[in-house]
Amino acid sequence: MSLILQTILDGLVLGGLYSLAAVGFSLIFGVMNVVNLTHGVIVLIGAYLAYAFWHGLGVDPLLAIPLVMAALFAFGYVYQRGLIQLAVDRSSLLASMLVTFGVALMLRNVLVLVFSPDFKSVTPSYAFTVFFLGPVTIDLVRLSALGASLVLLCVLAGVLRWTAVGRVIRATAQQDLAARLCGVDVRHVYGITFGVSAAFAGASGAIIGIVVPFSPPDEALWTINAFVVVTLGGVGSPSGALLGGLLLGLISTLTSQLIGPQFPNAMMFLILVVMLLLRPSGLLGNAFSGSR
């Protein structure tokens, strides 16, 4: 019994991370219909930036989050205005997806050159503090990871709901032509959306760094994770990402506990394919209306 409880708790912690890592991907997909295959590598860049802050300056990864977010916001904005928009203007969405794939390869190569292909991890001072909650144990690192993920998701939800920028982003997602007619500079909005997406991806990377080791080839996995989260939870909203992320987290810890530690990835892809086939609109019915 306590084993199952422990597994579920671990799943929720992992799920919080998956949610945060996927929310930006979901936002971009919802607002501009672009499948951003660079997403995973941006998550990793966040992790490496936090790593650099920790080892270079001794800044705690959680405290480095605002810095990481600011840097990646700028990166995302420039990336969208300078490259993605060009690709979207010139060719099909499928082709723009290839551009993001190309950039992912380039960035991954850069990460290998700068940080080596080996696994890295960030171990802050509180890495080994452990709590006991009745029969289950939880370490401080995971608890703070889950907390930080949830706080950041709430922040994003709040920004989207209550601020002027958020309202414009949501309006553009629903009807970009109408937004344009209302005088919204849609390209600027797209740039901001990409920036926000990259910032939150980076934040998730900084948190991931303290929970699990990471290496450049992981980027593909983080991109696909995001895709699965969106397939499960739905496109374009933090709540959908939260639902999808928690489910994915539970699925992966339960699979590895009940079926075998080597199967979570296979299970995840299986669920991805089956979900696309059976419920292309996501569990809540708001994802992937155009999948067939």
């Binding site: 499928l94 696909i224 990835n265 299986l270 991805l272 292309p280 999948s291």
Partner: peptide
């Protein structure tokens, strides 16, 4: 599945 969904599902198939 069509378009990117087919593309990604095939990526999933290869991983499985």
């Amino acid at each position: 599945l069509r378009g990117i969904y087919f593309a990604i599902a095939m990526l999933g198939v290869s991983q499985v």
